[in-house]
Amino acid sequence: MPFARAQVARARWRRSAVLTGTLYLMPAALLTGVFIYWPLVASLVLSFHEWNLVSPTWTPVGWQNYIELFASRPFWLAVVNTGKAAAALTLLAVLIPMALAAMVLRVSPQIRNLYRVVLFSPSVISMAIACAVWLWIYHPLYGVLNTVLRLVGIEGPRWLSSGDWAIWGIINVTVWKSLGYNFVLFIAGLLMIPSEMQEAARVDGATEWQAFRHVTFPLLAPTTLFVFLTTFILAPQNLFVPTQILTHGGPNEASNNLGYLVYQLGFEYFRAGYASAAAMVTFLLFLGLTALQFYLAERRIHYES
């Protein structure tokens, strides 16, 4: 191809790209603006007011909602629980699907498909229904979980009504529900790694585990990071439904978390301003933490490549 023609094509692309590119952004940008950022701004303004959704006026209260929030026990319990949940989720809902995906790819292709369907299946059930099912599994007297524990000589806890265990009951359902999708992402990630590299390692005398640890795992890093981030970001939202259905944040706030707290303040107490303040804090907290992770991750990937 003559050099000049290529130049012309590139220049034309660049000239038009600014306009067309902005055009491509528009559908998403407009919808985001109207349906996400406008409510966010309204919510920010509302967080400095008191409003019960029905009264015609918003009463300005300055920073009062934020002051009340930072002084309230439920808020700090919710922060701690959300932290616990985010940590447990990012650990369990990343490592388990990774291990499962690595194992599934070792078995013969015919059975592999079966595993893939079975392991994905929790993702297709609605969270509300999943919780209704887990309610039976968790039953302290004759639920299957404690029945099995009793077989091995352990008296299981009251998963949903004990202050020490309720948050773990919630986390467990959430992990279970996130496994399937993360599993599929790992399968995708693993399939993108050329199999020759792993075989080469094995020819060099590495054990299965060593091959995974030193060859597969580093090559899987982008997928892992991605799964890690999305699991983390979605944690507060994914905890919401199980909390609402299984414990209402109880007993005595023991399983409350930020996603549910916002709902509780807004829809159980009907304090829209106060709920908005809690929502703003949640948003900023997760925005900050995610930005930090992005920053660290970008640096790391930079090093590696």
Partner: peptide
């Protein structure tokens, strides 16, 4: 007295 959630 049993102490558990409502549906339970």
């Amino acid at each position: 007295a049993a102490n558990m959630t409502w549906e339970e």
